[in-house]
Computed example of a mutant assay.
Amino acid sequence: MTARTTRTTRLDDGVRSALGALSAAAKRGLGDPALAELVQIRASQLNHCAFCLDMHLGIARKEGVGERQLDLLAAWEEAEGVFDARERAALALTEAVTVLTEGFVPDEVYEEAARHFDADRLAHLLALITAINSWNRLMVGRRIPPGSTQW
């Protein structure tokens, strides 16, 4: 077994504050705290960020997201009747922005999201997806464990 490289837990206070402010503003502007948590959890699942999953699952429960939705979030596309059309559009956009499989967000995914969110809320949803992806990369890149207070 090879030894694991020690990674930094350091994060510049200015970076933390700026990214935290972006996350908070995006969540506030989206205007749906439960949906915001579903989006952040789904991105964190895709990015394998245990720290963010741990944090956002706890927040989601406090925001009233049901266990059934949390249990089936990884398979939301197949979980008919569990997520409404608006949630499904937000989750599809989350996956498209997070993974960028085709190198861009497909028009049909964006257009479906635009049918469920006005321009301001859609802008905040995109900002929230961008913010959580940044947080995921900061935490995964440094291997910050779930529940850590040193990050």
Rank of each mutant, 00 (worst) to 15 (best):
G14E: 14
V15G: 05
R16Q: 08
A18F: 14
L19A: 10
L19V: 13
G20L: 08
G20I: 04
A21C: 02
L22C: 13
L22D: 15
L22W: 11
S23D: 13
A25Y: 01
A25I: 00
A26I: 02
A26H: 04
A26W: 02
K27R: 13
R28P: 00
R28S: 10
G29Y: 03
G29W: 09
G29K: 07
G29I: 08
L30W: 02
L30P: 03
L30E: 00
L30Y: 03
G31M: 08
G31P: 06
G31N: 08
G31F: 04
D32K: 06
P33N: 08
A34M: 00
A34I: 05
A36G: 10
A36R: 00
V39M: 05
V39P: 01
Q40K: 15
Q40I: 07
R42V: 02
A43Q: 09
A43L: 08
S44I: 04
Q45K: 07
Q45G: 04
C49S: 13
C49D: 07
F51L: 13
C52P: 05
C52H: 04
L53H: 02
H56D: 03
L57G: 07
G58R: 12
I59G: 02
I59V: 13
A60K: 02
A60P: 04
A60Q: 01
R61G: 05
